[in-house]
Computed example of a mutant assay.
Amino acid sequence: MVPRIAGGRPMTNRFIAFLFLALFASTASAQERRSDNRQDHAGQFDFYVLSLSWSPTFCASQSGGKNDQQCSTDKDFRFIVHGLWPQYEKGYPDFCETKEPGRVPQSLGQPLFDIMPSMGLIGHQWRKHGSCTGLSQRDYFGKLREAFSRVKLPADLSRGDSAVTLSADQIEEKFLAANPGMSRRGISTSCEGRQLEEVRICLSKDLQFRDCAEVDRDGCRISQITLPPAR
């Protein structure tokens, strides 16, 4: 019997071949997507990204008393740690299964308030990123503190007493000058509109500076980026 399509007309060999190719392409595409959806396992990653957020940019977007720990009028944070993120060479793991609790106790978070001034931020970073390191909460935040101390902040950028406007390359050059061994291919600047959002620095598992092609490519490259002043 000759296959027929709607309306009763017989299918031609060319049409049948087209349907077969379309089905094959769809199946191959689904297999490709599945191969990209790797299973994230705690402790299985390639390197870290230390993300340093420019707090005045973040706080300018907050209203109604949100994030008072970081943004109330008596606070004047500059660079803070957004997070220490385990990364693959392409992509990153998140929300990994761990035997550690999801909630970070105040006693563990409070000593970080000088560089990570919010229990909400601390808790979220643990659940999304810290859980994938294979470390305990205590060891993860110890590693985060160590990573922050590994990076010297450029004094003229981190002063925050007045607005500064530079290109992404100029911002990164200041970090490179302050940190021997850091490579231009191992740092990335992100922006929110035309303001500095974050500086992301790639570190090996033992916290040595290293290159990271994908992170570097994702950086903001607009000609002028402003660091708004701290309050």
Rank of each mutant, 00 (worst) to 15 (best):
S26Y: 01
M116C: 05
A230R: 13
G8S: 03
R34K: 13
T98R: 02
C191K: 06
H82E: 05
R4V: 10
R145I: 00
R78M: 02
G120D: 14
L207R: 00
S190M: 09
S63Y: 11
D216N: 12
E192W: 12
E197L: 12
L108W: 02
D139I: 04
I5E: 11
L112Q: 04
P229W: 01
P93F: 04
D218I: 05
L227I: 09
L153W: 08
D218W: 11
P229K: 14
D216G: 03
V2A: 11
V2W: 07
L50W: 04
K90N: 12
F47L: 15
P180S: 10
V199T: 09
D218M: 15
A168C: 07
K205T: 07
S149W: 08
H41A: 11
L166D: 09
S158H: 10
S223A: 14
E32I: 01
G65Q: 14
A147Y: 06
R145Q: 13
K174Y: 08
S55R: 08
S162Q: 12
R14A: 13
T226M: 13
P93T: 06
S188T: 10
F24R: 07
Q87G: 08
I201G: 02
V49H: 05
L50D: 02
W126T: 00
C96M: 05
R127W: 00
T27F: 04
E173Q: 15
Q31I: 11
F15E: 13
L108Y: 02
F20R: 15
P117G: 03
L112Y: 01
L23W: 11
S131I: 06
I80C: 03
T189C: 15
L203N: 06
L121K: 02
R159Q: 14
A155D: 11
A168F: 05
C220A: 11
I115S: 01
A6N: 03
Y140N: 03
W126P: 01
Q87I: 11
E97H: 09
C59R: 02
A177K: 14
A17L: 06
D156T: 15
R150V: 08
V104W: 01
C71G: 11
L153I: 13
S61G: 14
T226S: 13
M1L: 11
W126C: 00
M116D: 03
I5K: 14
R217A: 13
G193W: 14
G91I: 05
K128I: 04
I122L: 06
G123S: 12
D40T: 10
T133H: 00
R159D: 14
Q106P: 01
Q44P: 01
L157C: 11
H82G: 04
L50V: 08
